[in-house]
Structure formats: structure tokens, C-alpha cells
Design a binder for these strands. Structure first.
Lengths: 125, 125
DNA sequence: GGGGCTTTTTACAAAGTTTTTACAAGTTGC
DNA sequence: GCAACTTGTAAAAACTTTGTAAAAAGCCCC
């Protein structure tokens, strides 16, 4: 899955995590993160919308190609595995937005006010 | 197979393995490696993209001239025979990238981050 | 046309990945 | 507080990909 939009995306980097979209590689504290394809797809989608809430349906749509009718827990399980691989920073990075979806936050993002220049709910909830 | 691109390629050499593309000869710890044609084609393609992941389809395309529609296990079998001939270093040299393809790594390549100056997925995944 | 070699296929085992299941824990609104 | 609903988690099941051995098929040269 993960159709379209591979057009020249700048790498992501903060003090602990970096993602190189071109090379489909991620590193945590300079160590390569070994991600499966779905894990990578999910993480990179979240990271590319850092600071924005992405609804579950949008994630399931983009990463899995699932429409709203499909009921599955696979997203939760993948988020869990991503968090595990993010180690101590997991909760810093991946927030659960209850009833809506998830949000990736750059390491030092302000905890209360979110960015002003971006929609806070992404991908046409 | 193995069309085009034979234009003056520098030999490869690390502490155990060397490939002389001009003479189509390989040596492991100074002993000549006896490779069949396909084995050589495959190894030299991998080596010429050392450090990069080469997707299965690219290998099947370049070495066998197969398009994506062909389903075959011959690549796996050839990788196996190459590994056998690489002896103890096999796993050091030829990595399996699950779900994608293979990657040749020079003997002492850093294990985590791969070179920054080269695409990590080669040949148009 | 038969021996010796290479390559491909086949069939199964092993390893890796993804999804489901079942239940625990958390959240919300009454 | 409690019922309804959502998310977290571990483990199992289902599925996919890769590894391997052996047989079959293809080649080449005499």
C-alpha cells in the first residue's frame, strides 16, 4: 500500500530519531531501526504529518487500503510494535488521541500548543 | 543476460574477496573462486552495488531478463550457491532484505547506517 | 546420443511478517 | 459509580517469503 506521494520528501531528524524516506531507513540514537514494511509505512506516514492528528480511518486507508467498513485491530498492534521499537521515547513520540487516532510529535515539540502553520487534524477526517 | 554497462569498472577488493570485472574472475582469500556464469553475473551485480539493497525484480530483470510476471525460485537457489562458495563469510557478505531483495556488504561495512551518498534501494525499486 | 556440467523447477522446511483473538485496562458521559 | 465504548497487550493463528535438497531439464562438446 501507501500509494502515491513519494515525490522528494526531506528526511526527518530530531535529537533521537531520524527517517530517511528516500532510503526507507530509520535510526534511533544513531542505531539503525529494523522495521518491517508495514511498520515503516505507518511510522513514515505519522512522521510526515508530525504534529497533526491522523484519524484511524486515514491510517487504515493509507497504509492498509482498508475502507471504513473493515473492522480490525491491526493498527493498534502495529502502533504497539512501533512504540516498543522506539523504546524509552515511545510515549514522547506517538500520542494516542482517544476516539480519533494517533499523532506523532517531534522530540521537543511543545506539549500544549501545537504548530500554528499546520492543520491539527490531517487527511480530511 | 546482464546487458549494457560493462564500461570500465574498477575491480572490487576487500580483505577477503576480490572481483576483477574485466577478467570476470573472483577470488576469496587469494584462492580463485570458481563461479558459473550466472553465479558470476549475480555476484558482480550485487558487488557493483555494494551497500545498496537490490530488489528481487531488479536482479531477475538484470541477470535473467525476467519481467515481474515470472515466478521462479532460481534467484534463491543461486544466492544459496553463492553463499556456499563464500564459505564462512557468506552471511557477512550477502544480506537478505526480507520482502525486498538482497544486499552485498563489503567486509567491514558499518552494520547500522549505510552509506549516505548512495541510494539504499538501487535500480528503481 | 551420452557424459559432464549448469540452470531451473519442485517440494517441503524454516523463518519472518501480519492479522486476529481474547481479554485487560483506560476513557467518557450519564 | 457504572455501562458503553475505545485502546493496550500478549499470544496464537494465518499468511508470506526465503532457505534448502534433490530431481528434472537444458546445454555443450566430443
Amino acid at each position: 500500500m501507501l500509494t502515491g506521494n513519494n515525490h522528494q520528501v526531506m528526511p526527518y531528524r530530531d535529537e533521537h530519531l531520524s527517517l530517511d524516506f528516500e532510503h526507507q531507513a530509520a535510526a534511533l540514537d544513531s542505531e539503525r531501526m529494523m522495521l518491517t514494511r508495514k511498520e515503516y509505512d505507518l511510522l513514515s506516514l505519522l512522521v510526515q504529518h508530525a504534529g497533526e492528528i491522523i484519524p484511524r480511518e486515514a491510517l487504515l486507508m493509507q497504509v492498509w487500503g482498508y475502507g471504513a467498513e473493515i473492522r480490525t485491530r491491526t493498527l493498534d498492534v502495529h502502533v504497539r510494535r512501533l512504540r516498543k521499537k522506539l523504546g524509552a521515547y515511545a510515549d514522547q513520540y506517538i500520542e494516542t488521541i482517544f476516539g480519533i487516532g494517533y499523532r506523532f510529535q517531534p522530540y521537543h515539540a511543545p506539549r500544549f500548543f501545537t504548530a500554528m502553520n499546520k492543520p491539527v487534524i490531517a487527511m480530511g477526517a
